[in-house]
Design a protein around this nucleic acid. Structure first.
Length: 679
DNA sequence: GCGAAGGTGTTTTTT
DNA sequence: ACACCTTCGC
């Protein structure tokens, strides 16, 4: 249970607020997650049924953590029936129940970026346009943007000022048609189609309004127009919407987030109560002072006065390093020192950076030092070809209309259906206006087909159908997956294609990781099925990913590596903010645009405010880039931090490359240690 | 259908 | 620098 007296007056007011809309402006570290969870507990306590409560977050991690905390507070049983979901999983739920009204079948596929890419490139090729992956990415970006702004394919307008938009007007409708023909939706469709359903069908809207009498949204400053519309619809009948956010932590403008949503909330929802949470319970005074000093350089923001009563704490340290490798080494050194000095665990440290590619140097160094770590984000696991191949099979088994994935596996592993035959079948399917799967089932009716190819196609169809049956047995999902991979002899295929045995073995092991994902899924799901497993995979639930790191999973005492974006909402005793350089933070793509620079500054603010006790800022003088050396400048944000808060050090050492030099740097580490504890 | 050779881009952030 | 992809010759 929780104690209302343990909350400060503003928090208490927020927790006990019952009906009507509520805007909670919660500064970093002001205990907002605690307020949300307490509020849920309080509602339950007041007799609100769990199933009437909806809490929406942006990330699966946040959703999971919130659910855990509520469970701890009120017990698993009382929390049963409550829905804590991300925007995407909430919408997926809505679609799964009602998507047939929009002309899709319930076994629809979800297209992630690689599927989208393939599809767009095919469409570009069809109309004879350049179909490079870059061109496809640009188009997908535009289409995604349109969807985020609720602009459907028929409403999309080309603009003279935007040379690419003409192409979007041709491709976007075709893309949507193809998706529908393949019984597939993409990530943005999850939201857009859910909104369409709620707008077009009052009975569906009523059902959800009625079901979710109390709604809470975390990180409201990051909502984009579709998400805003969705919330507005869901709260339309009762207005019991409680949104929590901080305009200073708005960092998702690039995917359509509009800070105006939080700034105008009071106008949108009449009779809104506004509560500000300004007391910070996370960081030391110095860290807060630095954060405040940086963020105050932004013009458009709600003035907030974060304060703490927990003392000034240690100074913030800035290290100017020689290069990227040196930067990583400095972090390792500091981890050893702090761990020894402060009796900290590895799990108390996080290394944050602007771009995921920066993780590599740290990973190498952590591995070299045998320090356990977890890498958050970067969907590289599912981006691996060998994983995508297996998932393609599963998607086709689930939904044979999915032609992107059907074509991916039709001749993989090789079964004697060459590119010529495939082209022939595709052409025939277009002429007959029948789906590929439809044609394949009666491939003997296709004219001018070689017998051998026809037999191969028929065998393929039999295989898929056989597994469709097998995967219907929920208790044998794992075994069936293993049988499928064994029957396809995918391991042999990998060893045949990949000459390097080490690499090949790694790939095979990666495929086997999917078994772990499946096992985890089966453990956690009351009524498992193939569709549910695929959903988990495509919605990037990192718990479903099984993650490639077994050790760090088991002994969760690991250093955390992640991008600034994924660090939002988290906190660590010691934070290393790496790459404090112009071009990284602010990122080079935002240098020309003042609004973008402000967003980078908020990103910096987010990073600083993750630290509870100690903050280390690092940057390099030079970095290796495409093999060349690149000179770097310290980030402008560094100069916005008052000098008296900073302890500066610059690494004089040239980059150590040989083993002897590495030893030298190790002895240097002990020299530093002695210096620290000498007197 | 295979392998070699040459060409390309990679590095913004997420569901 | 390197991995990945496409293309071309067989």
């Amino acid at each position: 249970m929780f104690d209302l007296n343990s909350l400060n007056p503003q928090q208490r007011k927020a927790v006990t607020h019952k009906k009507g809309s509520l805007l909670l402006l919660a500064g970093a570290g002001s205990g907002k997650t605690r307020v949300i969870t307490c509020r849920i507990a309080h509602l339950l306590h007041q007799g609100v049924a769990a199933r009437q409560i909806l809490a929406v977050t942006f990330t699966n991690k946040a959703a999971r953590e919130m659910a855990e905390r509520v469970n701890e507070m009120v017990g698993k049983n009382s929390a049963k029936g409550m829905l804590i979901a991300t925007f995407h999983s909430l919408c997926l739920r809505i679609l799964k129940a009602h998507i047939d009204r929009l002309g899709f079948k319930k076994n629809f596929s979800i297209y992630a970026s690689s599927d989208q890419q393939r599809l767009i490139r095919d469409l570009l090729r069809e109309i004879g346009a350049e179909s490079s992956s870059k061109a496809a990415d640009q188009l997908l970006w535009r289409i995604s943007n349109a969807k985020n702004h609720l602009i459907s394919a028929d409403k999309y307008q080309a603009s003279d000022r935007d040379p690419l938009s003409a192409l979007v007007t041709t491709i976007y409708p075709r893309y949507q048609q193809a998706l529908k023909a393949f019984n597939a939706v993409d990530f943005d469709d999850l939201l857009m189609l859910a909104v369409q359903l709620l707008e077009q069908y009052p009975d569906i809207l009523d059902h959800y309004c009625d079901r979710f009498q109390y709604q809470m949204v975390d990180e409201y400053q990051d909502t984009n127009p579709v998400q805003y519309r969705l919330l507005k619809l869901l709260a339309s009948s009762h207005g019991n919407l409680c949104v929590v956010g901080d305009d200073d932590q708005s960092i998702y403008a690039f995917r359509g987030a509009d800070v105006a949503n939080i700034l105008d909330f009071e106008n949108d929802f009449p009779d809104t109560s506004v509560i500000k949470l300004e007391q910070n319970y996370r960081s030391t005074g110095n860290i807060l002072a630095a954060a405040n000093a940086v963020i105050k350089n932004n013009k458009q923001r709600r003035e907030k006065a974060l304060w703490t009563d927990s003392g000034t704490g240690a100074k913030i340290e800035y290290r100017l390093c020689e290069d990227g490798e040196d930067e990583a080494r400095q972090v390792m050194e500091q981890i050893h020192i702090e761990k020894y000095k402060g009796k900290l665990k590895y799990g108390d440290f996080a290394i944050l950076y602007r771009t995921n590619s920066q993780s590599r140097a740290f990973e190498e160094q952590l591995r070299y030092e045998n320090i356990p770590y977890v890498l958050i984000g970067g969907q590289q696991f599912f981006d691996r070809k060998e994983i995508k191949d297996v998932i393609a099979y599963l998607k086709v088994i689930q939904n044979p209309a999915d032609e992107v994935n059907l074509l991916r596996i039709l001749n993989y592993p090789k079964r004697g259906i060459g590119t010529g035959s495939i082209d022939h079948i595709i052409r025939y399917s277009a002429e007959e206006k029948r789906s590929l799967w439809n044609i394949l089932q009666q491939v003997d009716l296709v004219p001018k087909m070689q017998d051998r190819t026809a037999i191969a196609c028929a065998d393929f169809v039999t295989l898929i159908k056989r597994y469709q049956k097998r995967f219907k047995q929920p208790l044998r999902l794992l075994e069936t997956l293993q049988e499928l991979i064994a029957e396809l002899k995918l391991a042999d295929e990998i060893y045949r294609q990949e000459k390097d045995h080490q690499v090949a073995r790694r790939r095979v092991e990666n495929q086997e990781e999917l078994f772990n994902s499946m096992a985890i899924y089966l453990e956690r799901t009351p009524q498992p099925d193939l569709a549910g497993f695929l959903e988990r995979l495509s919605i990037f639930d990192d718990s479903a990913a099984g993650k490639n790191d077994k050790e760090s999973k088991l002994s969760s005492d690991s250093v955390t590596l992640m991008s600034l974006h994924s660090s939002k909402g988290l906190e660590f005793p010691v934070i290393f903010l790496a790459g404090m350089e112009e071009g990284f933070l602010p990122h080079k793509n935002s240098l020309a645009d003042a609004a973008a620079i402000d967003e980078e500054r908020r990103l910096c603010y987010v990073g600083i405010t993750r630290a509870q006790q100690q903050l280390f800022l690092l940057g390099a003088r030079q970095r290796r880039k495409y093999g060349k050396l690149d000179q770097r400048e310290p980030s402008r944000f560094l100069s916005e931090i008052p000098a008296e808060l900073l302890l500066q050090a610059s690494s004089e050492q040239p980059a150590a490359t040989t083993e002897e030099e590495k030893d030298a740097s190790a002895s240097n580490f002990f020299a530093n240690m002695n210096q620290m504890f000498g007197d």
